[in-house]
């Protein structure tokens, strides 16, 4: 049995987790203050995921760039694939929070959505 210490990134509390592993299978998680901790510990030991937040360029908008995010967490090793794909994207204003910017980014099955509103310069 292995012990692994993790810091939960589920929220800014940053609970310090103790994970008991056997043959890379999670047996026990302690130290969490909510159920997110256990979910995070299991994911982190088997398939670590992250939410990606970044910006894309905007045309005809009051903003130069619009902030966006992955709708759900995606595998950590796909972050740079997503960034690469998003470099090619240009949005046209108006943009609203929740608009789908790219569907199924980098074959993750996850959509990229806008996290800001941006009015158009001319409508």
């Amino acid at each position: 049995m292995d012990q692994k210490a993790l810091v939960c990134i589920g929220c800014p509390l940053g609970c310090r987790l103790e994970v008991t592993l056997e043959n890379s299978e999670v047996l026990r998680v302690t130290g969490q203050s909510c159920r997110k901790g256990k979910t995070y510990a299991i994911k982190e030991c088997t398939n670590p995921t992250r939410i990606l937040t970044t910006t894309v360029e905007v045309e005809n908008g009051f903003l130069e760039v619009a902030s966006i995010k992955t709708e759900k967490d995606i595998p950590k090793d796909k972050l740079f694939d997503c960034i690469k794909e998003l470099k090619k994207v240009r949005l046209t204003a108006p943009i609203h929070i929740g608009d789908i910017v790219v569907a199924n980014i980098a074959d993750t099955g996850v959509n990229i959505i806008a996290t800001t509103n941006c009015e158009a310069l001319d409508t």
């Binding site: 800014p12 937040t53 929070i97």
Partner: peptide, 25 residues
Amino acid sequence: LNQCIHNGFGLHVFKEELTGPEYAY
């Protein structure tokens, strides 16, 4: 908040994880 595009905001107040601009809106 407008320039804090990362997530992690709102877990206490809205019980969901938001980015800065979303929290501001």
